[in-house]
Simulated scan of single mutants.
Amino acid sequence: MISDGMAEVLRSLHRGEADDTAQACARALGAEGVALSALVGAKRSAELLWCHPELSARFEELQFTLGEGPGPDAARVGSPVVEPDLERVRPERWPALLPAARELGVHGVCCFPLGIGVIRIGVLTVLCDGNRRMSEQEYTDATALTAALTGALLNGDRRDGDGGVPGLGVALEPPSVLRRAVVHQATGMISVQLDVSMEEALLRLRAHAYGSERPLGDIAADVVARRLRFSHEFDGDGSGPYAPDGGKG
């Protein structure tokens, strides 16, 4: 049975009355933070819809940049990935994410996929404080919240007058205009520049973002704007980006 606090959150979501959905969910779950991402496009990339606090957004960006972590795993396997203490996770499981998460100050993460059957449409990420595991009650509440958010997203075609999804307090735009679109465009450009597959191009893009300690979206925007170009001749390993003179490629 869900807690009284989560029951109130779900009633507010149903009525569309939640002023700050993310903060209300975090409070009900006793979490350090929460984030809701929708899976969009052919590659099912995670598009952040809302979060609380800013740390949650930074962790979601980190997972997207690296392409690894509990969120991508939950989306892929379709079942919750519960790791309330990242210090206990084998280093080889998420080799790039674990040290970066530690540096961010993220101690534990539990991710719940949104969907029905094989259809997966999003991920709810819950940040833990690292000093305790998610209780059975909190797990039950998170599962109930995931089901409610799944219903809200699947019924997103019944939008209110402001174009938002009822109860979520967010506006869902077509995938073609979402922020992640620039990453897909940049990936295509790098694929052509290096004559490699799209998968290899995305790996090169992510590697450069991680190495330069910049968000993946910022690096992608530079590629699309032709401020950054990947070329074999400028790096011995064949992944070398460089800035063309005058910012023109």
Rank of each mutant, 00 (worst) to 15 (best):
A171V: 14
P80Q: 04
R227S: 09
R88A: 13
G249T: 04
P84V: 02
M198E: 13
L178S: 10
K248R: 15
G163D: 11
T146L: 02
L203F: 06
A243T: 12
L153Y: 11
L36Q: 03
R76C: 13
H14G: 10
S3N: 08
R88G: 11
Y242M: 12
P95L: 06
A243F: 03
P72V: 02
G249D: 12
A22I: 02
R133C: 11
G236P: 12
L205H: 01
G169S: 09
M198L: 14
I190R: 01
P95H: 07
V170L: 04
V118A: 15
R227A: 12
A28Q: 00
Q137C: 07
Q23P: 03
L98Y: 06
A22K: 00
D157R: 13
V118F: 07
S45M: 14
A26L: 03
V109R: 00
M6T: 04
P99D: 08
S197H: 06
R102V: 09
P244C: 03
R132D: 11
R226A: 14
G163Y: 12
F59M: 11
H232C: 09
P215K: 09
P215M: 08
R214Q: 14
D235Q: 14
P215D: 06
L194P: 02
A101H: 02
E47S: 14
Q193W: 12
T65H: 10
S191V: 07
F112D: 03
A18N: 01
V123P: 00
L127C: 04
G151N: 04
E83T: 13
E17T: 13
C51Y: 05
A96H: 13
E83Y: 07
E136T: 13
A220H: 09
L104T: 03
E136P: 03
D19S: 14
D157S: 13
R180L: 09
P174R: 09
E200K: 11
E87L: 11
V126S: 01
S12I: 05
P166I: 07
R180D: 13
Q193P: 01
A209R: 04
R159Q: 11
Q63H: 10
L114M: 03
F59C: 09
R159W: 07
V126N: 00
M1I: 07
V223K: 00
P95W: 08
L104V: 06
P72C: 06
R15H: 13
S12F: 04
L153F: 14
A100Y: 04
I2P: 00
S197R: 11
V40K: 09
E17A: 11
A209G: 11
V182N: 03
A26E: 01
P113C: 01
P113D: 00
F112C: 06
